[in-house]
Design a protein around this nucleic acid. Structure first.
Lengths: 215, 215
DNA sequence: TTTCTTGTTATACGGCTGTGTAATTCGTTT
DNA sequence: AAACGAATTACACAGCCGTATAACAAGAAA
């Protein structure tokens, strides 16, 4: 029996939901899905466990929402690169490819989160829909950049090339994130540029100018 | 109070360990890591929960062993392809690449298992070592096939090309496993051959002859 | 047949899980 | 200042988790 009840401040619904989602993602990233228990999430968000069921009908719903938020973040991280990318189509594609295999798009935490949710994604239809949309969004971005190259290419060829380049990016994203120590600094970027360049028959390597903002 | 004790047969240590490992992998594949509880594993293997701690010092050890077994299976599945692959270096590489993005190497269950263990792999040093070894084994196989091509290439170039081709394969392996319905039959194989062919500047597509044993 | 080893089952335990519900207190409205 | 609504806390509950330990029985050895 507590001497005094824990004092608290009322917050907006959006703020509380955001905090709970962030706490859940943090915990999943640190300790896997099973570490994100109702009590741990509440603790991390600075509230008591009961509050979670006041904002989410079940823990499963919180999980779904958190996954959706993660995918949104990954997609917007990718799209953000294009905001201050060069105008030249070749350099623009090169910059996008390089960013996609570098932080913050590619990092061990993001991969860990992605993997942790994978099983639920396969089982839950709504989560699978989120995943599919995010994958196709990314691939469409890539295909748009490829289509802008100064070449002639059929639609079918563009699709094939986009899938292939996406494959390279995803594969290197994965390997670079898990086995970062197995590669030299910049090696993944160089390989990504060279490989996608080969696939598209365009010299991306010499078109790539590292972002001056990032040391 | 049970009327009678459950009857049982004694088995060899190897048999029991194998059964428990297989049961654990089955359950992880079906329901994620959290579905592989001590009780569920024992039930699936046809024994009682206590027996697990007779053969494994902890559930964590069973997990590590199961992961090691999974990696062994994936590696040997990959290597098996080379046993009845063509002798011609180009056709040989093409057959290896195609097999690596097809069943049984690439399938949703394998990807799900791989993802389920990923977090533990990042945290546990011995599991990480297993993963690294498996990755390098696969890449070395690939690099060996690339080196056998009728071309001249430096060691550094071979390494770069192997990493790039491995990236393509891994990426397509991932996407094809999760989003199988988003691709036409054989499309992933065709793209994998075309992309790796471009990277290596070799025509793998026309060198590829589908295995007659597989319809 | 009887003994002995040990593979196997049975059971207990503390701790943690997600959920349901009642009590409280914050901040606003009257 | 008093009342009110609802955000938040507090607590209870059944169930499952991994682990520990003791009782049993299967099959080999004698």
């Amino acid at each position: 029996m507590p001497d005094h009840r824990r004092p608290y401040r009322r917050e907006t619904e959006e703020r509380r939901r955001e905090d709970l989602i962030a706490a859940a993602l943090d915990l999943v990233a640190e300790g896997g899905l099973h570490a994100a228990t109702v009590r741990a999430i509440a603790d991390r968000a600075g509230v008591t466990p009961g509050l979670i069921r006041h904002y989410f009908t079940s823990k499963e719903e919180l999980t779904r929402v958190a996954y959706r938020r993660l995918m949104q973040r990954m997609t917007s991280d990718s799209a953000a690169v294009l905001l201050d990318a060069p105008d030249d189509p070749v350099a623009r594609l090169a910059s996008f490819v390089a960013a996609s295999v570098s932080a913050p798009v590619a990092d061990p935490v993001a991969l860990g989160l992605w993997a942790a949710f994978l099983h639920d994604v396969r089982r839950d239809a709504s989560m699978r829909a989120v995943h599919t949309a995010m994958y196709l969004d990314f691939r469409d971005m890539l295909q748009g950049l490829i289509a802008a190259l100064p070449r002639v290419a059929s639609d079918a060829q563009l699709r094939t090339e986009a899938i292939a380049c996406n494959g390279v990016i995803d594969g290197l994203w994965m390997e670079g994130s898990i086995l970062a120590e197995a590669f030299a600094v910049g090696e993944i970027i160089a390989i990504a540029l060279s490989a996608t360049g080969s696939i598209l028959n365009v010299d991306l390597t010499s078109a790539y100018k590292p972002d001056r903002n990032i040391p």
